[in-house]
């Protein structure tokens, strides 16, 4: 099983397998380190910097999600520098972004005691919802530029490369090329970007519509695991059902076939199930 190394986290000695990230090492000793952009099935983007920790001997703080643990490393997860960085990250994001449907960001605000108004009032991400197809919407007011959607569309899963981060600096944005609509773009509507979006910036049209009508109620939704009925790959589906209607389809992130990813038919092609007049009975 490879070699093991020993490091110190908040004064506690920890032994982990070689190649383990600092963040995973922290998890092994139940030390909570917040993350926003990190996703278990995607390459670390290193973008949000919510997961920074202090590594002894390092001039700057270190992103724990991507840094591989080394023998003898001494790590502190809650020094004043770490606390300040986390808090400012939360404050900067909330000053630009609608975080109302971003659970991890809401948690970060709370744990870092962020003042969400401190840097507010300047340029923000507010913009109209992009509603250019009937499968999913893009509400980029909620985007935190975590790169997850780009990675899922690109070489971490779908390999379609329909979207990219374009422009630079504060004007960086997720774009399909010259602001094209999705139907004009290379998008194949697999919705894997939606599956990994942590903020609700990408959302199924059904969920978005139900939410805007105040009909989306997590407590009323049942989730059943089953297998897709299209091709022979055998993707596991989680059917989210509200009032006997499938309102959303996802897949478990830990499933060995899908790793949480589906194709357009599996994710959106379920309507035939509930066309109530499909058979005169």
């Amino acid at each position: 099983m490879g070699n093991r190394i020993t490091l110190t986290i908040d004064g506690q000695s920890v032994s982990v397998a070689e190649g383990t990230t600092v963040h995973a090492a922290c998890e092994q000793v139940d030390t909570f380190v917040p993350t926003l952009c990190w996703h278990e099935n995607l390459s670390p983007a290193n973008a949000c910097r919510a997961c920074v920790v202090e590594v002894k001997g390092s001039r700057t703080l270190v992103a724990s999600c991507s840094r591989v643990a080394e023998e003898g490393m001494v790590i502190e997860t809650s020094t004043p520098r770490v606390a300040n960085a986390r808090r400012v990250v939360a404050e900067l994001l909330t000053s630009t972004t609608d975080y109302s449907t971003a659970p991890e960001l809401l948690d970060l605000i709370e744990m870092s005691s962020a003042d969400t108004r401190r840097f507010a009032g300047g340029a923000s991400w507010e913009q109209p919802v992009k509603d250019d197809n009937n499968l999913y919407i893009r509400d980029l007011s909620k985007c935190i530029l975590c790169y997850r959607c780009v990675e899922a569309c690109g070489d971490d899963a779908q390999n379609t490369f329909a979207i990219t981060v374009a422009g630079r600096g504060f004007d960086s944005r997720i774009d399909a090329g010259f602001g094209r609509t999705l139907p004009e773009s290379d998008c194949v509507f697999c919705g894997n970007c939606v599956a990994v979006c942590p903020t609700g910036a990408l959302m199924e049209k059904t969920e978005w519509t139900l939410r805007s009508e105040n009909k989306w109620d997590d407590n009323q939704i049942t989730t059943t695991e089953t297998i897709c009925s299209y091709c022979g790959v055998g993707c596991q589906l989680s059917l989210h059902v509200l009032d006997n209607q499938i309102v959303k389809v996802s897949s478990p992130m830990d499933h060995p076939v899908t790793h949480g990813m589906l194709c357009v038919k599996g994710r959106y092609g379920y309507q035939f199930v509930q066309v109530e007049d499909h058979m005169p009975v």
């Binding site: 197809n133 009937n134 499968l135 999705l182 139907p183 509507f189 009925s229 299209y230 091709c231 357009v264 038919k265 959106y268 092609g269 379920y270 309507q271 035939f272 199930v273 066309v275």
Partner: peptide, 14 residues
Amino acid sequence: YNTGVQSNGYDHPH
């Protein structure tokens, strides 16, 4: 998909 009995039930932009 196949003869479309399943896949023609949803509104795909293409």
